[in-house]
Amino acid sequence: MANQILIEPSKGWLRINFRELFEYRELILYLGWRDIAAQYKQAFFGLAWAVVRPIFSVAVYTLIFGKVAKLSSSGIPYPLFTLCGVVAWSFFSSSLSQSTMSLLGNTNLLTKVYFPRLVIPLASLGRGTIDFVVSFVMLLILMGAYRSLPGKEIVFLPVFLFMGLALTLGIGLFCSALSARYHDLKHAIPFFSQMWFWVTPVAYGLENIPNRFAWVFYLNPMTWIVQGFRWCLLGVGEMNWEKTLISGLFSVLVLTGGLLYFRKMESEFADFI
């Protein structure tokens, strides 16, 4: 027979069944869509929120850091400069908060139905993807308005997209599994994400950071993803390939670790959650 299922006790670090995950691709899309649809149906302005949020952030950063603090933005108009950072950052932060809550928010599914557990954190990336797409389109419009055309560097954009995705998913997997096991983590993660924001050059350029604090930014892989986005799309600065490569490797490592950890924990979800 075609489908043979063997059920046995879990044995530590298990292999990930990517083929099975692929079989469940429709469920990933449906769950992602459910979260988005339900969220925006409840809101009066619906999807408009996805547009309002980046506009608001960019306005605040431009006003505070550009106009009041008069920080430099590498010769690029300040709104364009920060919006590009917001595009890269919004996917990360919104996916992080969604995936942290993903398992806890789907307790009934976990305890009543079988499917590869990875489906849940993967589906939780839906919100982040919408936020990303909307703010990316806004960035393209703004680039058009400022007559700022991307150079040939844009061919490297997929590299940075992949880095961002790997890092986000990796950390998201850790957060979702950990918060399912230790419920109080869901309070800590938004705070942690807030701190992370301030050590990433989203609202201000890296050149404004005093040397003695620069190392924090250098160690942060998100720094090189945001810098990469600006380099690809706006042609800002020189690319630091060495540091980018290191954070790229680090992102892949986080993703692998996240997958393995999630896989190890997933057999317990139904019993603990």
């Binding site: 063997l6 059920i7 006790p9 139905v113 079988y114």
Partner: peptide
């Protein structure tokens, strides 16, 4: 239904569940 795993022992199922 593979929602939780056994502590010991095995089960084999042939077919779409």
């Amino acid at each position: 239904s593979r929602i939780t795993r056994p502590t010991n022992g095995t089960a084999q199922i042939n077919g779409r569940v």
